[in-house]
Design a protein around this nucleic acid. Sequence first.
DNA 1: CCCTAGATTTACT
DNA 2: GTAAATCTAGGGC
Length: 186
Amino acid sequence: MNTLPREFYLRDTVTVAKELLGKRIVRKVGRTEISGTITETEAYRHRDDPASHAHRNVTERNKVMFGKVGISYVYFTYGMHYCFNIVAKNKKTRAGAVLIRAVRPEKGIRAMQKNRRQDSVRNLTNGPAKLTQALQITKEQNGLDLTSDSKLRVTEGTDRKKAIIASPRIGIREATDKLWNFKILI
DNA sequence: CCCTAGATTTACT
DNA sequence: GTAAATCTAGGGC
């Protein structure tokens, strides 16, 4: 399956968040391939988005969001969880990323069940910190180039276009008026 | 099914 | 100091 090119991510963050629905994340750990289709995303921008990590200045944590598009931004939160984002923004914007909130498991379900210590396929990747655990993504994968890395990529999907549901983003207190959470039905 | 509480570390108010 | 782009277990219905 074709890996998405850099230009895919060089557009408005909100546009890319919608476009990523139905695309596929492919992770390789040793000889095991783990993959899933993206079913839920959220856009986080820069100056106009008080809920974004990059709303203020560059810090050690958020610096990837100010860099090249198509790079992974993995951050640690709530004392125990990792979340996986992809840097995306148009040329005029300094910072932005798309949070991957849910995927539908495809290849490597056995490995995911082991990683999650959980048998129920429904509960494998239906949350931002669940899918990082299932795909073995930690801060080690922060800053990888998703357009060329051998162990973590985003490729075209096989799904037909489906209706997109837009909602307020989850778990934030600011900018709840922006409908920048996007999902497709499973 | 729903709800609430507790876990546990980082980053920056 | 404290809030955080969250999850799970445990109890009630």
